[in-house]
Every structure is written in structure tokens, then in C-alpha cells.
């Protein structure tokens, strides 16, 4: 008989646009449920292990963008397959050695329940560690974006901020955002869906028209 009977079986990846899988988990801020975040955006992210170098730089990065995320009504929730004691020791160590306070909770997912719900363990890369995953969950608790990075490569905090801003801009203004978009840049007007609308689009004043299907405007 396997000695891994308390470890949850992998379920697979969530789907973009689908409701985020609900969970209850032990964290460095007590027992939390995903539903506790309803009404705010959430970045649920995993890291391979506590007390490892790349993860430490990422935690510092996440802590530094946390004030900006809060302005966007967005919370952070970390996760790894470590105990809550390891998390507490690591978070305290980061504060002591690097003078950075980690203000967000970190899930202690020893039984891998949450990691498997979200497909965070890539067995081809590591059977014991979560990859560097980011799940953007909106205020209605739907999955809006996913980012997967390997163990070797730290994530880009500016891109995570940019992604949240772009998603919220799309929601608020009914537009899309082009490659490398940043706040202040022009946004893409959804393309026409009929011949008549396409003919009207190319005659529209006050917007930047490349062709009927690619038009931009300033916000």
C-alpha cells in the first residue's frame, strides 16, 4: 500500500474564464477560504520551496508590488508544498536578513490539495515541488489568466502588475489591449462583426484606423 494516501491526486489545469476551484487551506494568516477573497482580485501564486534563492527574490518582488496591487483591489496569496512552520521561519528570515516584510498569506499545502486543484505540480519538472504558477482570479472568482514559469526562472513583477491593469481596463472600458500595452497607451476597439459595421468603422473619426479590423483609441 502506498504511504502517500493523504496526498491529493492531481486533477489538472483550471480553465480560463471558468470559476476558480474553491478551497480551504492553512496559511501563515490562519485558515482561509478562496471565498474570503470574493469582491477583490487575487493573485494565487506558487513557488517551489521555502529557503531557496530564486523564490526569495520573488517573494521580495511580490512584497514590493503589493502596495500597487492593493490600489488595484488585488490581494496576493502564496503557496508551496511546505509546512506552515517552514513558511513562518522563511518569512521571518526574509525580514531579518533582507529587511523586507512579507505582508500576504502563504498556503502550507503539504497534502497538495490546492496545488493539485490548480495543476501547480508539473511532474515532468519536479514531483515534489510546485512550479512558478500565477493564477489571476477576478472579483467574481473566475480564472482570468495563468502564467507558468519553470523552477529556474524568476517571474517578472512588472508584467504581473501590467496584466492586472490590462484585465481591469478591458473589463471597465470594453476594449482589448495590444502587445506590450501599458497604462496610457492606446487600446484596441473590438472589431466589427458585420459588413455594415466594418464599413462604418473605416469612416469613424477620432480613432486610429489601420484597417476595419484593427482600430485603436485613447482612453
Amino acid at each position: 500500500m502506498s504511504d502517500n494516501t493523504n496526498i491529493a491526486a492531481p486533477v489538472g489545469l483550471p480553465k480560463l474564464g471558468a470559476p476558480a476551484p474553491q478551497f480551504e487551506a492553512i496559511t501563515t494568516h490562519g485558515t482561509l477560504r478562496l471565498e474570503d477573497y470574493s469582491g477583490s482580485w487575487l493573485i494565487l501564486f506558487s513557488h517551489p520551496a521555502d529557503f531557496t534563492p530564486v523564490c526569495t527574490t520573488e517573494f521580495i518582488g511580490f512584497a514590493k508590488i503589493y502596495p500597487e496591487l492593493k490600489k488595484l483591489n488585488c490581494e496576493l496569496l502564496g503557496l508551496s508544498i511546505d509546512s506552515v512552520y517552514a513558511h513562518i521561519a522563511w518569512v521571518r528570515n526574509i525580514e531579518e536578513k533582507l529587511n523586507v516584510k512579507i505582508p500576504f498569506p502563504v498556503i502550507a499545502d503539504l497534502d497538495r490539495k490546492v496545488a493539485n486543484l490548480y495543476g501547480m505540480v508539473s511532474m515532468a519538472e519536479s514531483k515534489t515541488e510546485t512550479s512558478r504558477c500565477v493564477f489571476v482570479i477576478d472579483d467574481k472568482q473566475n480564472i482570468r489568466a495563468m502564467i507558468y514559469y519553470p523552477l529556474t526562472t524568476g517571474r517578472n513583477m512588472d508584467e504581473i502588475l501590467r496584466l492586472i491593469t490590462a484585465l481591469q481596463t478591458s473589463d471597465a472600458k470594453g476594449v482589448a489591449t495590444p502587445a506590450n500595452w501599458k497604462p496610457g497607451d492606446m487600446v484596441i476597439i473590438p472589431p466589427p462583426l458585420t459588413i455594415e459595421a466594418a464599413e462604418e468603422r473605416v469612416k469613424t473619426k477620432g480613432i486610429e484606423i489601420t484597417d476595419w479590423y484593427l482600430s485603436k483609441k485613447s482612453l
Binding site: 494568516h29 490562519g30 485558515t31 482561509l32 477560504r33 471565498e35 474570503d36 477573497y37 477583490s40 490581494e75
Partner: peptide, 12 residues
């Protein structure tokens, strides 16, 4: 306090 933390605390 953060709303998520308040919800968890109130529940318990």
C-alpha cells in the same frame, strides 16, 4: 484589517 482576513476571523 483586510477584508479576506476579517471574513476568515468572523467565520471562526
Amino acid at each position: 484589517l483586510p477584508l479576506f482576513s476579517v471574513r476568515a476571523g468572523l467565520r471562526q
